[in-house]
């Protein structure tokens, strides 16, 4: 297209609508829209459309089994949200889990990336594949395996801890241990984030490291002053994805507790409450309101992250 742009005359006779449309930038934009058209159609039909429907639904008492009884209830569902102990409790549970799992995932994925990107490490490829491999296992299947692994009486983990003379926690049925247990399960599938971090690490110019070394910088200083700043856009991306994933956490908790949120609602995360209200209790209007609450919370947190990122994230090509 740039060739076409260069070929255009710079001075033309009085501009008409037709010639305006013939401007390269407009034509490029038009073709761009045409090319992303299929995606746009998908967005409107399968994302924006259902979002609008769910927004309307959240203003009704729509019940799956009694669709004809649906009526407009205004903001009643949103008012109910504010005082619903299960929603408030689930938000607290989600935040508790997020506080543990987000830093753990970020640190572990970066740690593995550093390790598996080390110049002196042998068999980098197979090792990276090994760390990535759990990502390819279906979540339900891997969770079922983990349930056995974490069993208090017959699980391997407690078997090892017991052999070392350490206490054998009740990983799955204790309100204290369930979040660490879920975080451990989460660590098993950090492969995606690790791969992204490796890509980020490999994009850091090696001259910078050489210059730092010549200036006498140690490993920690190099990591803190060069690696982290230059990796910051990648880390921000991972953080946003982990944050969204944590607020949408569902499959593992559902599989482990049959959707009941045991022990004592500790795993009744906001997405599980949404599912139960909509598909178990049939309160689809209320579930839609919960979905919008979740959307607003995640959007708000993401915006906060981006606001912080303005000062903390370094973009080599200038601020984005």
């Amino acid at each position: 297209m740039s060739e076409t742009t260069e070929a255009l005359p710079t001075a033309v006779a009085p501009r008409t609508d037709a010639t305006w449309l013939a401007r390269p930038s407009i034509r490029e934009a038009a073709w761009g829209i045409v090319f992303i058209g299929p995606w746009l159609i998908g967005l409107v039909l399968f994302t924006a459309g259902p979002m609008i429907v769910s927004l309307v639904m959240s203003l009704t008492n729509f019940d799956l089994v009694h669709p004809s009884a649906a009526r407009f209830v205004g903001l009643d569902n949103y008012v109910r949200l504010a005082g619903d102990p299960s929603v408030i409790g689930s938000l607290i549970a989600t935040i508790k889990f997020a506080v543990i799992t987000i830093p753990l995932t970020m640190i572990a994925s970066l740690g593995f990336a550093l390790l598996l990107n080390h110049p002196k490490l042998l068999f980098k490829g197979p090792l990276r594949a090994l760390v990535y491999m759990p990502v390819m296992i279906p979540l339900v299947a891997s969770t079922l395996v983990w349930i056995g692994f974490l069993n208090t009486d017959t699980g391997w983990l407690n078997g090892i801890l017991g052999a070392l003379g350490l206490p054998r926690p009740d990983w799955i049925n204790s309100q204290t241990w369930i979040y660490p247990a879920l975080s451990i399960i989460g660590l098993w599938s950090i492969g995606n984030f690790m791969i992204i971090n490796i890509a980020g690490l490999q994009s850091v110019p090696t001259e910078l490291y050489e210059a730092a070394r010549m200036d006498g910088a140690g490993a920690w200083t190099t990591f803190r002053r060069i690696t982290i700043p230059l990796m910051s856009p990648v880390l921000l991306y991972n953080l946003v994805i982990v944050l969204i994933g944590t607020f949408q956490y569902f499959t593992q908790a559902y599989t482990m507790t049959n959707g009941r949120g045991d022990p004592n609602n500790a795993t009744l995360f906001i997405n599980l409450v949404l599912f139960r209200e909509g598909f178990v209790f049939n309160h689809m209007g209320y579930a839609a309101a919960i979905a919008w609450l979740l959307f607003v919370i995640v959007l708000g947190l993401t915006l906060v992250l981006f606001a912080v990122a303005r000062k903390r994230v370094y973009y080599a090509g200038g601020e984005r």
Binding site: N173, G261, D262, P263, N264, R276, V280, F281
Partner: peptide, 20 residues
């Protein structure tokens, strides 16, 4: 009344004594 929600409540009771 509201069988599904009631059931969730009594299942929670049962699971509580079986785990604690």
């Amino acid at each position: 009344p509201d069988y599904a929600k009631s059931k969730a409540a009594w299942q929670k009771f049962q699971n509580n004594y079986r785990t604690t």
